[in-house]
Design a protein around this nucleic acid. Structure first.
Length: 863
RNA sequence: GCCCGGGUGGCGGAAUUGGUAGACGCGUCGGAUUCAAAAUCCGAUGGCAGCAAUGUCUUAAGGGUUCGAGUCCCUUCCCGGGUACCA
């Protein structure tokens, strides 16, 4: 029986690491540093799921590896603990969110420790701790004092069921991201952060980041910079009234055959003629009633109404009608457009619907049979622009507009200011009081403004946030004047705490500022940041924004917080086979799609076989669905890490999650796969220890032979290179190859076993520590030196060459290493091979390809 | 629709600058050990033909470049993610 006993070993080493503070961050700044960060979790009531350890294991491997490479490593963890679930639970049960949160955090901490992550547990941060949110409030005050935080009455996404306002990003298809409740538009006083002021820098600084290209692209699209022009159109019969439009295609102005204003545009009332007024009013009312969702739903049919007014196209003096339509958005650009149906698909559609004229101003290619033509080409019907391509035409028309004082170059962003307040209890209070209806900053000495105690966590009857229930807390005085004042009752959104937590880890106890300047200078930027791609836009954009503000305040030394970013891919449930049944008969999965009255029948993999491209029920032609689904409680396919650790140990869980495939990829869970890596650990154990009760040492003091050194150094090279590139799956495969090879040896020299244990340790730290100590070392191996490989020990005595004739392998030859680069020798040997001669016979060699240490290819033709 | 990723054995996945496709693991089959089982160990394992040597086909499909293509180019199909009237 095997004596590798993970549960005993793992608890013992976890205790050792904690008691000895093995992973405490070094205080000295004398060595190179490495800051490796996980996106900190929201401590939910359901505990850790198998997705968490994926990214956490990856960063843990890097952290342990870097320590052994001689770096000072900062590897912290904390809790993003404000948020809606604890509050909803409080509404239901009356349990204070603080208590729920504390309980959940304790559970999460326990689970993370159970997995053997090498966090510095003295640096935990907790966003709900007043000592932490004091500095969140402090940062808000910097924003406020810089004029980057302002109050605004604006239509917001109000969710009645949640009793709160949601950011645009938190609304998906007109429903709340959390809970899926309907969301309506409602005007409300809100705090807003001027992220738009940083739009250009947020865009430009993306270029230098080592982030996934797709994530950078998403942020670029979100920021949505467009370069174009603003152009003023005179309104006929309204002397001095102009409509300003924004366009990215000023070069098409000669094709502007009508204009469209957003229904909410402020000039609509003024320019509408009496005959059209009824229709316009009616259209505006209807548009106002619609939510954003409804407007989007009706994208198929363009709608709109003529205002009766005409504008003058400044380029050619022609009169064009002015319409209103809800396909023009009030909040983008100037809320008005010049419509150029010839070059814009939306305008073309609208023009077709309402029978408006269409003029092409870019010559499409002859074979073009579409409608609007949006590609490049020479300008036509455009007076002095004719013949120019888009770029040149843009340049020329902008010069012309500026000379004539009717327009200018202009830049627009899709990005909107950040709606920063929520009508919730469990969030950071704003450090703001209202005196005579005006917001005023609480002075820094009076921070933190702590959450008041209340016993009902619902909004008030009048719809005010829950904090309004704490009447004594709300009513206060202005310390400067002694005048009565009211505290702000909104709280900050969950993003606030996560916008700067990576800084607090650097000096968690520091009480002079969010972060100690000297330590910040040493540790920043974060060298590696790992977390889910669901944060590609929101968290990462907001954190970058705050970081830049802090940079402008002189508080941080880097323009960007996260140098390198990696997203771990989601782990899906085990593959499930599903057959479909209708009216008692099995039907093929593709027929079942969209049918009603279909029952799903789960099958086991022994009922299923592969036939061509698809899976079918064994012995039939009935197609079966084979799919790994997202893990979810309702589907019942959730894998609980606790169970996996109980059965196989934390080392096996860690190893398996890394072995599944590339870190970034989505991949299905397989319990059989865990068993596989568990077998590997058992084999590794038996490599060093005898199969007796005490696991006595099998390792010898003998000198390793050349073969053993070769196998070892190949493993060192592969594992080292793969960790550097975060290819953990192939690194583990290299460790497996080592064990497979070593299993065939007669002896296991200590000088080979020890480097192997170190190679294994970042992946499976518990078993490695145990091996290390049984090999006779005291203490932990966490700071042992990472082994270096020696290329000289890796060369083989012979080199194998595949020999091809006309690109097909016909033989393999072994060449002594010293002759391996001798072209004539190798080709000579190749030609003698029986199976090669066969193909050369009766043919002429027209070319001999020789790639040293790679391949030989003889090109022949008959005759 | 648009923008990013991807399509490789029964499955998860490997494959330097283009150089033996299928490493490693799972599963399956056969064997050893055992009273038996579990565990463990050994062997086989992409398809087709063949006793075998070997041949032939094969990286979503089709075409191209090359002595040689999973890798480069073109066309098409499918899957995943993001986004959606942003002028």
């Amino acid at each position: 029986m095997s004596t590798y006993n993970p549960s005993e070993i793992e608890t013992r080493w976890q205790k050792y690491w904690l008691e000895n503070k093995t992973f405490r961050t070094p205080e000295d700044h004398s060595k190179p540093k490495y800051y490796v960060l996980d996106m900190f979790p929201y401590p939910s009531g359901s505990g850790l799921h198998v997705g968490h350890p994926e990214g956490y294991t990856a960063t843990d491997i890097i952290a342990r590896y870097k320590r052994m490479k001689g770096y000072n490593v900062l590897h912290p963890i904390g809790w993003d603990a404000f948020g809606l679930p604890a509050e909803q639970y409080a509404v239901k049960t009356g349990t204070h969110p603080r208590d729920t949160t504390e309980k959940n955090i304790n559970r999460f901490r326990e689970q993370l420790q159970m997995l053997g992550f090498s966090y510095d547990w003295d640096r935990e941060v907790n966003t709900t701790d007043p000592d932490y949110y004091k500095w969140t409030q402090w940062i808000f005050l910097q924003l406020f004092n810089k004029g980057l935080a302002y109050e605004d009455e604006q239509p917001v996404n109000w969710c009645p069921q949640l009793g709160t306002v949601l950011a645009n990003e938190e609304v998906i298809d007109g429903k709340s991201e959390v809970g899926g409740f309907p969301v309506i538009r409602k005007p409300m006083r809100q705090w807003v952060l001027k992220i738009t002021e940083y739009a250009d820098r947020l865009l430009a600084d993306l270029d230098d980041l080592e982030w996934p290209e797709s994530t950078k692209e998403m942020q670029r699209n979100w920021i949505g910079k467009s370069i174009g022009a603003e152009i003023d159109f005179q309104i006929d019969k309204h002397e001095g009234t102009e409509i300003r439009v924004f366009t990215t295609r000023p070069d098409t102005i000669f094709g502007a055959t009508y204009m469209v204003l957003a229904p909410e545009h402020h000039l609509v009332n003024k320019i509408t003629t009496d005959e059209q007024r009824d229709k316009v009013e009616k259209y505006r009312e209807e548009a106002a009633k619609k939510s954003d969702l409804e407007r989007q739903e009706l994208t198929k049919e363009k709608s709109g109404v003529f205002t009766g007014a005409y504008a003058i196209n400044p380029a050619n003096g022609k009169e064009i009608p002015v319409w209103i339509a809800d396909y023009v958005l009030a909040h983008y650009g100037t809320g008005a457009i010049m419509a150029v149906p010839g070059q814009d698909e939306r305008d073309w559609e609208f023009a077709e619907t309402f029978d408006l004229p269409i003029i092409r101003t870019v010559q499409p290619p002859e074979d073009f049979d579409g409608k609007a033509y949006t590609e490049d080409g020479p300008a036509i019907n455009s007076d002095f622009l004719n013949g120019l391509d888009i770029t040149a035409a843009k340049k020329k028309i902008i010069e012309w507009l500026e000379e004539n004082g009717v327009g200018k170059k202009s830049i627009n962003f899709k990005l909107r200011d950040w709606l920063f307040s929520r009508q919730r209890y469990w969030g950071e209070p704003f450090p703001i009081i209202h005196v005579d209806g005006k917001p005023k900053a609480v002075s820094e000495e009076d921070l933190p403004v702590t959450l008041p105690e209340i016993d009902d966590f619902q909004p008030t009857e009048s719809g005010e946030p829950p904090l309004a229930r704490a009447k004594d807390w709300v009513k206060t005085t202005d310390p400067e004047t002694g005048n009565p004042a009211l505290r702000e009752t909104n709280t900050m959104p969950q993003w606030a705490g996560s916008c700067w937590y990576y800084l607090r880890y650097i000096s968690p106890e520091f009480d002079g500022a969010p972060v100690d300047k000297g330590d910040e200078n040493y540790w920043m930027p974060v060298d590696l940041y790992v977390g889910g791609s669901e944060h590609s836009v929101l968290h990462l954009l907001y954190a970058r924004f705050w970081h830049k503000v802090l940079y402008d305040c002189g508080l941080v030394s880097t323009k960007e917080p996260f140098k390198k970013l990696v997203h771990q891919g989601m782990i899906l449930g085990e593959v499930e086979y599903t057959a479909y049944q209708k009216d008692g008969k099995m039907i093929s999965a593709d027929e079942a799609a969209g049918e009603s009255g279909v029952t799903r029948v789960p099958l086991s993999d022994s009922d299923v076989e592969k036939k061509g491209e698809r899976f079918v029920m064994k012995g039939t032609e009935i197609t079966v669905e084979a799919k790994a689904h997202k893990m979810s409680k309702s589907r019942g396919n959730v894998i609980n890490p606790d169970d996996v650790v109980d059965r196989y140990g934390a080392d096996s869980l860690r190893l398996y999650e890394m072995f599944m495939g590339p870190l970034e990829q989505v991949k299905p869970w397989s319990t059989k796969g865990v068993e596989g890596v568990n077998r590997f650990l058992n084999r590794a154990w038996r490599l060093l220890f005898n199969n007796d009760e005490k696991s006595s040492l099998k390792v010898t003091d003998s000198e390793p032979n050349a073969e053993q050194l070769k196998v070892l150094h190949e493993a060192i090279k592969k594992v080292t290179d793969d960790i550097e590139e975060m290819r953990f799956n192939t690194a583990i495969s290299a460790l497996m190859i080592f064990v497979n090879e070593a299993n065939q040896w007669d002896s296991m020299p200590k000088s080979v076993a020890e480097p192997f244990v170190i190679l294994l340790s970042p992946f499976a730290p518990h078993i490695a520590e145990e091996m290390w100590s049984r090999l006779g070392h005291g203490g932990s191996l966490a700071y042992e030196k990472w082994p270096e490989y020696d290329e000289k020990l890796m060369v083989s005595k012979t080199v194998e060459y595949p020999v091809q004739v006309n690109g097909k392998v016909r033989a393999n030859i072994e060449v002594p290493a010293d002759k391996a680069k001798d072209k004539e020798f190798v080709i000579g040997l190749a030609k003698q091979q029986q199976n090669v001669e066969k193909y050369l016979d009766g043919s002429t060699i027209i070319k001999e390809i020789f790639v040293p240490e790679r391949i030989v290819n003889l090109v022949v033709k008959p005759g």
